[in-house]
């Protein structure tokens, strides 16, 4: 039995410790907001936060989450930065198919938590692991900048 905290709530999973966190979230806990895209840490669709750090949950064994805090798209709107990022995404209608966007938002929140005023180069670096097949990169960049602005305004 592995215990951890997801979005502030205790969670437990009776699975082998090497099961990827992604599948524990999706199949054991029924939280389908975190997406499967590649299974090899190549696309970022499965990005969640582990004690505040962005990780690819498809290659993170659930044992690595034992006793730690996991944050996912379902709960990120309850954090101040997550709320601003989602608001910026909504205002710009960033998503197309939307499938990559949970991961994009989780990566963006992680970036802005570390670096409230990211440069274009910072954005490239933080977001390069998140593929969007619909090609929403320019809108993602704009939304990150808008969210950063609204953070400094404290709005």
């Amino acid at each position: 039995m592995i215990e951890f905290v997801v979005n502030g709530k205790r969670a437990r999973a009776d699975v082998p410790g090497d099961t990827p966190l992604l599948w524990v979230l999706r199949d054991t806990l029924g939280m389908t907001g975190t997406k499967f895209g590649c299974g090899q840490a190549l696309c970022g669709a499965c990005t969640v936060h582990l004690d505040g750090q962005p990780v690819r949950s498809c290659t993170t064994p659930v044992s690595a989450a034992a006793g730690k805090k996991v944050a996912t798209i379902e709960g990120i709107g309850a954090t101040p930065i997550g709320k601003k990022v989602q608001a910026a995404w909504t205002a710009l209608d960033v998503p197309q198919c939307g499938y990559c966007q949970s991961g994009q938002i989780m990566s963006a929140v992680a970036l802005l938590s570390e670096n409230p005023k990211p440069s274009d180069a910072d954005i490239d670096k933080a977001m390069d692991g998140n593929i969007c097949r619909c090609g929403t990169y320019n809108q993602i960049r704009a939304a990150i900048k808008d969210a950063a602005k609204s953070m400094t305004k404290g709005a």
């Binding site: 709107g77 966007q101 949970s102």
Partner: peptide, 27 residues
């Protein structure tokens, strides 16, 4: 006009084929 599908696509609630859960379902 703003897209009607945006809200569900920024909070993780949009349901894709991958997210279908049917009672008794196997994978």
């Amino acid at each position: 006009a703003k897209r009607l599908d945006t809200p569900a696509k920024v909070n993780g609630s949009a349901m894709f084929g991958m997210d279908v859960r049917v009672p008794g379902m196997l994978t």
